[in-house]
Design a binder for these strands. Structure first.
Lengths: 330, 330
DNA sequence: TTGTATGCGTTATCAT
DNA sequence: ATGATAACGCATACAA
């Protein structure tokens, strides 16, 4: 690899002048600039990012933490982040937390070591108090997941509204016996809290009572969905509709329903969440809440880069639209 | 961030001694080692990878190039690579080529700049002659995709056998009119070549003629699959079975078939490729060729790290098992 | 066994 | 407008 010294030697200039040309500094004559440019061309010179990094420059690398890349929601999110970053000359370092607090912290350390300029967290496993100290080493942006104070820039969706729209849709379809799945616990704190609120609000407005037996917590996968349906089948008093926390859980429910010759939506109406590709693959096609992954990724990168260029930018929260997509499962 | 100098100062030793302790060098007295260790602990010291990198050390970062991360085949592959790498203390830098030659090269440049120790290519867009020069800057390993000489370590599957198994299965089910989809072109070179061979071999063995009208090239997505089915419907002489290059194309075919009230497998038997999660979600469930993504990722990382530790290791090709999974679509 | 000095490639500081 | 030099944090050749 050619270095700046090689360019300096070949062009007959000093390293400083070469550096000035590279970084578009003023005070370099057109004549010498040409000389340097020509030498760079000739040697196929590219600045060594490692050396720049050591000098405290930006790394033009953004880290992204996802819980699991095989979850389509996150792979689509990463996709849009990677594309947006590449367009702006940034690279993307990816890590899966596997929902593991320790792994999350291990990755945040990259910030400390200036391996990445900033990190986009798409899920947050540790309490914010644990994560906060890392913000002094670089920018942290929350995308999708969030905390309840404005401590970091956030790109988020109105999850409360998402759940509200889904439940309201079921009520309008005439359902009164509505089950509810969440990826979190059904409590006032922690994951899924906002969706729970939307659920409660819609139920209240419709004057229908929440049946605690029809609340399923900690549901994530297709397999989980299948089990949920089996549990419902064993009930004397069954719900006529179910709102799920993800398209995958909904998929499990629909697949298992078919095994038991249950008709959807006649016997059970199903609403998903995310609008992943499987929503259109399922038969019947899935009514779901669309989360605009593309917009989220794009926006996250945009805000992250603004933040890197101007670290004392005021912390803001950006909310993106969320919408109900009605298909055949309701 | 604490530096090696801070540790040296606090422990009252020289930077060299500290460095020796960090790197587990011999010739450092137990007494001083303790001292250094204590200071490191106290300062929460971690070596700065950037500085190490600049010194020409390994970066403990592996790059992975995938064509598209949203393709489940690749997201599962990346998943296993990331997990295997993390276990061994390596980070994973991800890039999508989007099947773009230029973007692929841009990413290979990371090798030149010692941003990554090695790159795992899961698809190869440029000709090998273009890529080859980069091997002198770091290790390149081919996983999934491959070239036809032993120019780099390869982790691959016997694609010929995969296609052969699928076609043979259809023949055994009594089919004679078999259509064939490929992601590449149906020629002797380039992508999909090996699968084409397996297809031809199986057809020949069964003494059934290949109908060129039933060959669909450059098929990748669910949307492509839908179009394929529409094209088949317009034919006077329709195939009774179809072998596809991916579960996604198969999914498109099955979904579209349903729209036209075609029964699967009665009216059309369908074989996929990959054994992605949708294979089990589709109704009917998809008969497909299983590619062991987990094993591929794991093995790739293992070989890559061996290679980094011993760069003059002989170049070898590792072939992993591929198998037919029979479900309901045939 | 330990320490001093040097260099990796870059950019910032300070002269000129 | 240009250049010499120091510094970023680390590991190593060499000296002691």
């Amino acid at each position: 690899m050619a270095t700046i010294s090689d360019v300096a030697k070949l062009s007959g200039q000093s390293k400083t002048t070469v550096s000035r040309v590279i970084n578009n500094h003023p005070y370099v004559s057109e004549e010498k600039r040409e000389l340097v440019l020509k030498a760079m061309e000739e040697l196929g010179y590219t600045p060594n990012p490692t050396a720049r990094r050591l000098r405290g420059q930006l790394t033009t690398t953004i880290g992204v933490i996802v819980p699991r890349i095989v979850n389509p929601f996150f792979s689509y999110l990463v996709n849009s982040i990677e594309n947006a970053a590449y367009q702006r000359g940034y690279q993307v370092l990816i890590a899966q937390s596997n929902e593991d607090k320790e792994k999350e912290l291990a990755f945040l350390n990259l910030l400390k070591n200036k391996q990445v300029d900033g990190i986009i967290m798409t899920s947050i496993e540790n309490d914010w108090e644990i994560i906060e100290p890392y913000t002094k080493y670089g920018s942290i942006l929350l995308c999708n997941d969030y905390v309840n104070q404005e401590v970091a820039p956030m790109i988020r969706l109105d999850q409360t509204k998402g759940a509200y729209l889904g439940i309201k849709h079921l009520v309008e379809k005439g359902h009164q016996k509505i089950a509810y799945c969440t990826g979190g616990l059904f409590d006032a704190h922690g994951r899924g809290r906002d969706r729970n609120l939307g659920f409660q609000k819609a139920m209240q407005e419709a004057n229908v009572k929440i049946n605690p037996r029809w609340i399923f917590v900690d549901q994530h996968t297709i397999e989980d969905g299948k089990i949920v349906l089996k549990q419902i089948l064993e009930m004397d008093d069954r719900p006529t509709a179910i709102f799920t926390g993800s398209d995958e859980v909904a998929a499990g429910i629909i697949i298992e329903a078919k095994e038991h010759s249950l008709s959807i939506p006649q016997d059970l109406a199903v609403v998903g969440f995310d609008d992943q590709p499987i929503a259109e693959i399922l038969d019947p096609k899935l009514t779901t809440i669309r989360q605009p992954m593309d917009q989220m990724g794009e926006k996250s990168v945009k805000v992250m880069i603004e933040l890197l260029e101007n670290p004392k930018m005021p912390i803001k929260t950006y909310e993106l639209p969320i919408e109900l997509i009605v298909r055949q499962s309701t």
